[in-house]
Computed example of a mutant assay.
Amino acid sequence: MASVKQFQVTFDCADPERVARFWCEVLGYVVPPPPQGFASWKEFDGSLPPEHQGSRFACVDPTGVGPRLFFQRVPEGKVAKNRVHLDVRAGTGLVGEERLATLQAECDRLVALGAECERVLPADDDNESCIVMRDIEGNEFCLD
């Protein structure tokens, strides 16, 4: 039996394109080309029935290494803590004050994009420091 080697991460949200473009900025991802026969995503979206327009968007890692991120519109807002979240690896290999300064600089960049800093978790005996954040629709993620 073959094992799955690729996956995508799906976000439920109110405004798929807006959230997708936020995550493009966070991760250095890009919007893939529109489907064959369409000059733009706007043109493709306009070809859909009105109830499906603006209902989905995606972004991809331009290197092809990271998973595709897919964003789908849902009618309800976020009401509870995420059961799954992304860890944005901004401080890999760094420790102590250097790590915290790097994480804080990335936090400041993401806040300027519309993210919220929820709390800083300082290093302890078991873990290095990380910063818990929320994206532009309130989905939790960590800078680590």
Rank of each mutant, 00 (worst) to 15 (best):
residue 1 M to Y: 05
residue 1 M to A: 09
residue 2 A to V: 10
residue 3 S to H: 14
residue 4 V to M: 14
residue 4 V to L: 15
residue 5 K to Y: 04
residue 5 K to W: 02
residue 8 Q to T: 09
residue 9 V to A: 07
residue 11 F to K: 02
residue 12 D to C: 04
residue 12 D to V: 01
residue 12 D to G: 06
residue 15 D to P: 00
residue 15 D to L: 14
residue 15 D to I: 15
residue 17 E to T: 06
residue 19 V to E: 15
residue 21 R to T: 15
residue 23 W to E: 13
residue 23 W to N: 09
residue 23 W to H: 05
residue 24 C to G: 00
residue 24 C to Y: 00
residue 24 C to E: 07
residue 25 E to A: 14
residue 26 V to G: 12
residue 28 G to C: 02
residue 31 V to M: 09
residue 31 V to D: 01
residue 34 P to N: 07
residue 37 G to S: 01
residue 38 F to V: 02
residue 41 W to V: 02
residue 46 G to L: 11
residue 47 S to G: 11
residue 48 L to K: 12
residue 48 L to M: 12
residue 54 G to E: 12
residue 54 G to C: 07
residue 56 R to I: 15
residue 58 A to L: 08
residue 61 D to R: 06
residue 61 D to S: 04
residue 63 T to F: 07
residue 64 G to V: 12
residue 66 G to P: 07
residue 67 P to Y: 09
residue 71 F to V: 14
residue 71 F to N: 07
residue 77 G to A: 13
residue 82 N to L: 10
residue 83 R to Q: 10
residue 84 V to T: 10
residue 85 H to Y: 12
residue 87 D to F: 10
residue 88 V to C: 09
residue 89 R to T: 15
residue 90 A to V: 07
residue 91 G to A: 10
residue 92 T to V: 09
residue 97 E to P: 00
residue 99 R to E: 06
residue 103 L to D: 15
residue 103 L to G: 08
residue 105 A to S: 13
residue 107 C to D: 07
residue 110 L to C: 11
residue 111 V to N: 08
residue 111 V to W: 03
residue 112 A to Y: 10
residue 115 A to F: 04
residue 116 E to Q: 12
residue 117 C to R: 13
residue 120 V to R: 14
residue 122 P to K: 06
residue 125 D to Q: 03
residue 126 D to R: 03
residue 129 S to R: 01
residue 130 C to Q: 09
residue 133 M to S: 06
residue 134 R to V: 01
residue 134 R to A: 11
residue 134 R to T: 08
residue 135 D to L: 04
residue 135 D to F: 00
residue 140 E to T: 08
residue 142 C to E: 05
residue 144 D to H: 03
